[in-house]
């Protein structure tokens, strides 16, 4: 446990003391700020029907664009940088296991991801007198944001064990994330059963819409948690393979 905390703290710290970390925070705030502004401008139109702003956000391109482009950037340096500088040799010759190293790095980047989303709570406080919020919905929406984010971060963690080159690691993560988002894009095309049911299990974006409506479906929890476990396990095995090459 202590070893996981050691890796986690170092990861989180690196984000918070590096210009890159703050660059990501600023870019993210600009991006969500823009989304917020857009949503408000639609909502204040008196002719518009009332829409839950979180549902609105989940249905828009904002979230999947973020998943596709931001999570690979967050995870790309996790292991590829260590492999490139050679510090991985120091890390893995301490009594830490590959699994602990992977979990530590993953939790570190996940915490930074959560830090990234924290300022968005401000938007809710800005709106709370104007719109009648259901706090349960908001909580479940944030749960969805964290679960789905964690899933994509685990994909990126795996991708960063595959190469010494950060840019290539980001590309791998991007491609895998794209494949995982594909079912969401296919929902518009596929109409027949049983394909439609299968896709509904994998459709990340409609899952987030469910979360925004306050629905926490255990099938979704199983999907994301097992997905995270799978990618972290694969990352640990891949790290062991690094030693064989």
């Amino acid at each position: 446990m202590n070893r996981i905390v050691a890796v986690l703290t170092r990861e989180l710290r690196t984000f918070l003391v590096s210009p890159m970390g703050w660059g990501i925070i600023i870019a993210f705030l600009l991006y969500t700020g823009f989304a917020f502004m857009l949503i408000i401008s639609v909502l204040i139109d008196p002719r518009a029907p009332f829409i839950n702003p979180f549902r609105f956000y989940s249905e828009s391109f904002f979230f999947w664009m973020f998943l596709l482009f931001a999570t690979p950037v967050l995870t790309m340096r996790l292991f590829s940088e260590e492999r490139k500088t050679g510090s991985i040799e120091m890390l893995l010759t301490t009594p830490i296991s590959e699994g602990e190293a992977v979990i530590g790095k993953f939790l570190g980047v996940l915490l930074f991801y959560i830090v990234l989303w924290l300022p968005t709570l401000v938007y809710i406080f800005l709106l709370k007198d104007k719109i009648d919020f259901d706090w349960g919905n908001i909580a479940s929406w944030y749960l969805g944001i964290i679960l789905i984010g964690a899933f994509y971060l685990s994909v990126g963690t795996f991708a960063s064990t595959l190469t010494r080159n950060q840019v290539i690691a980001a590309m791998y993560a991007f491609i895998m994330s794209f494949l995982l988002l594909l079912p969401s894009f296919l929902t518009f095309i596929v109409t027949g059963e049983p394909l439609k049911t299968v896709i509904s299990y994998l459709d990340v974006l409609s899952h987030l819409q469910e979360f925004s409506a306050g629905v926490v479906d255990s099938r979704r929890l199983v999907y994301y948690l097992s997905g995270i476990a799978f990618f972290l396990f694969t990352a640990a095995r891949s790290l062991e393979m690094v030693k064989w090459r």
């Binding site: 710290r13 590096s18 260590e82 500088t85 050679g86 510090s87 040799e89 120091m90 010759t93």
Partner: peptide
């Protein structure tokens, strides 16, 4: 039981 100093000393430079 081991203390190992690799040939290529790579620390975490930002710390």
């Amino acid at each position: 039981q081991i203390g190992y100093l690799p040939e290529n000393v790579a620390l975490y430079p930002e710390m």
